[in-house]
């Protein structure tokens, strides 16, 4: 059964059904090679966009998570409000709002890249905040008490005792978010970001072979994300080997 499926897939991809025209991205022809390179060029911005966005969202997420753990009601309310509001806005809507709405509101015009980064980071930060909150809460109360008993400050307690333990536990969830961000970065194509999806769409306009070009696009994301997943698992194994 499995072999049959693979055969069918290969036949489809080989163009045996007659509906395929792989020439459009065939690297052995000059035209196909140019097209393929054009598509792969989008990789740079897809990676840069999602990595920049997630770096920012991790920091913002942590800063939003900490007040959520405060004994003071006001701080916790700030955390809840932020998370609930940001989480409720669809990413695509946020991208459009930041790019087209924000300049009118504030007079600051962001270029496509930073508008994309801001929207993705903002949207992801709410999820990061929830992940961090859960991770920090999973660290036993005794760790805080031991830190207090040696007069460690709040900052040092977080930095040296709580966060190192929390981050090891939330690493799988952070890896998921990174993969999610890479996929969601495709939405920034709507405001003209020259990333993978935009490149594919532009090529389709001139070549008119959506089936092949989108198939290549799917494969591009697939390869990218499999590599990222393997990287995350490698980091996880290394951290686990070092303790706990």
């Amino acid at each position: 059964m499995k072999r049959l499926t693979i055969c069918a897939a290969l036949m489809l991809l080989a163009g045996c059904s007659g509906n395929w025209g792989w020439y459009v991205v065939d690297p052995t022809t000059p035209k196909g090679l140019i097209n393929l390179k054009f598509m792969l060029n989008g990789m740079y911005y897809t990676i840069l966009l999602s990595v920049t966005a997630i770096s920012i969202s991790v920091v913002v997420g942590l800063l939003v998570a900490l007040p959520g753990l405060s004994p003071k009601k006001g701080w916790r309310r700030f955390n809840r409000t932020y998370v609930e509001i940001v989480r409720a806005v669809p990413i695509l809507v946020l991208i459009l709002w930041v790019y087209y709405g924000l300049p009118t509101l504030t007079g600051i015009t962001l270029n496509v890249f930073w508008a994309g980064v801001l929207a993705l980071a903002l949207s992801d930060s709410a999820f990061q905040a929830e992940i961090f909150r859960a991770g920090i809460q999973s660290v036993a109360k005794g760790q805080y008490e031991a830190s207090q008993s040696i007069s460690l400050s709040y900052r040092d307690t977080m930095r040296f005792v709580i966060l190192p333990q929390a981050i090891r536990r939330i690493l799988p969830a952070l890896g998921n978010q990174l993969v999610y961000m890479m996929k969601m970065s495709s939405l920034v194509s709507v405001i003209g970001m020259q990333e993978l999806t935009r490149k594919a769409n532009e090529l389709i306009v001139s070549e008119y072979r959506p089936l092949e070009i989108y198939t290549v696009l799917v494969l591009e994301y697939l390869v990218l994300i499999l590599i990222v997943s393997a990287g995350v698992r490698w980091v996880e194994r290394r951290l686990q080997a070092s303790e706990i």
Binding site: G142, Q143, A146, S149, Q165, E243
Partner: peptide
């Protein structure tokens, strides 16, 4: 801080930092 600097504590569950 002054008091905690003068008073140490040993816990039932040890509460060592497991990652260090």
């Amino acid at each position: 801080d002054k008091i905690r600097g003068n008073v140490g504590m040993v816990f039932q569950q040890f509460n060592l930092f497991p990652h260090l």
